[in-house]
């Protein structure tokens, strides 16, 4: 134990409280704005406590007037985003487990070539090949489809590596025992490897769900029909500082709805989130 100085502890608490305030304030501000009327929002300063329009604003944004954003209801946008986040997370996990399994538990010609083919994709993020990727998507007719939104983002070197690292720690005796007992490779994968990988899968799921939910450039490229848009893109399209008609009170509601699901995932699955974050970056 170091010297016991209550003052230093107090200062540390103050620093942390200040940090929490700075980190949380933008979201609190948006939430407060989402419970006030348009007039209140347009005449700053905004009060620091929520107003009385919570039900009115959220009701209007969610069920009131259909087609708040380019003719599309918020339910549809949330659904699209949830489909995208879930499909990317599940798809990436399945594909990565299969290829990591092949690389670790089999010996076959070209194994290292495949390993490097997957590895190099780390260096080709969407951002550096925007236009040609878009062209491929047009040629394949994948614009404005769920396949287009999700499939190309499912190949991931990081997830494959995470599983590879984990599979390498499986004791060889386990494989041997399974083989002696007459288990084939698929039975070993299903009955032994997958149950052992449960925590890794949960951790990765949290990280990938957030990755999918917060995508911006990809849905921006792949969707032109606003019915296929995600909530983040739709929010961007609602905001205009030059247009006097922007319904700011509803914009704030949409912003909160765009933030809430992934934040809930992080807070409720914190243990796996921290594990996933620290391990995928190793």
């Amino acid at each position: 134990m170091q010297e016991n100085r209550p003052l230093a502890g107090l200062v540390a608490h103050l620093v942390l409280v200040l940090g929490v305030l700075i980190v949380a304030f933008p979201i609190w501000y948006t939430f407060v704005a989402s419970t006030h009327s348009l007039q209140t929002i347009l005449s700053p300063p905004l009060p620091l406590v929520p107003g009385d329009r919570f039900l009115d604003n959220y009701g209007e944004a969610l069920v009131g007037g259909i087609g708040q954003i380019g003719g599309v209801g918020i339910g549809r946008l949330l659904f699209n985003t949830a489909v995208m986040a879930t499909a990317i997370a599940v798809g990436k996990i399945v594909i990565s487990i299969l290829s990591a399994y092949a690389i670790v538990f089999f010996r076959f010609p070209g194994r290292m070539v495949f390993f490097w083919l997957i590895f190099i994709t780390l260096m080709l993020p969407v951002e550096v090949r925007i236009l040609p990727t878009y062209k491929v998507m047009v040629d394949l007719g994948l614009i404005d489809t769920y396949t287009g939104l999700t499939l190309p983002l499912m190949a991931s070197a990081t997830a494959t590596f995470l599983f590879r690292q984990f599979f390498l720690t499986i004791p060889p005796e386990l494989v041997e025992a399974a083989r002696i007992d007459g288990a084939g490779p698929m039975k070993f994968l299903r009955d032994i490897l997958l149950p052992l990988s449960k925590t890794n899968i949960a951790a990765l799921f949290v990280i990938l769900f957030i990755y999918g939910w917060t995508q911006y450039l990809w849905p921006l490229l792949i969707t032109s029909d606003s019915r296929m848009s995600t909530i983040v893109i739709a929010l961007r399209k609602m905001v205009s500082f030059t247009d006097a008609d922007t319904p700011w009170h509803l914009v704030m509601v949409v912003a909160i709805l765009a933030i809430l699901p992934p934040v809930m995932v992080v807070v409720l699955m914190q243990r796996w989130f921290v594990k996933g974050l620290v391990e995928t970056e190793k």
Binding site: L16, V23, P26, W213, L235, R236, A255, P262, V266
Partner: peptide, 16 residues
């Protein structure tokens, strides 16, 4: 209380 901004999309963070 400190980790949840990680879940906010960059574009939304900018707009906040």
């Amino acid at each position: 209380l400190l980790i949840w901004p990680y879940a906010v999309a960059p574009a939304v963070a900018g707009m906040l």
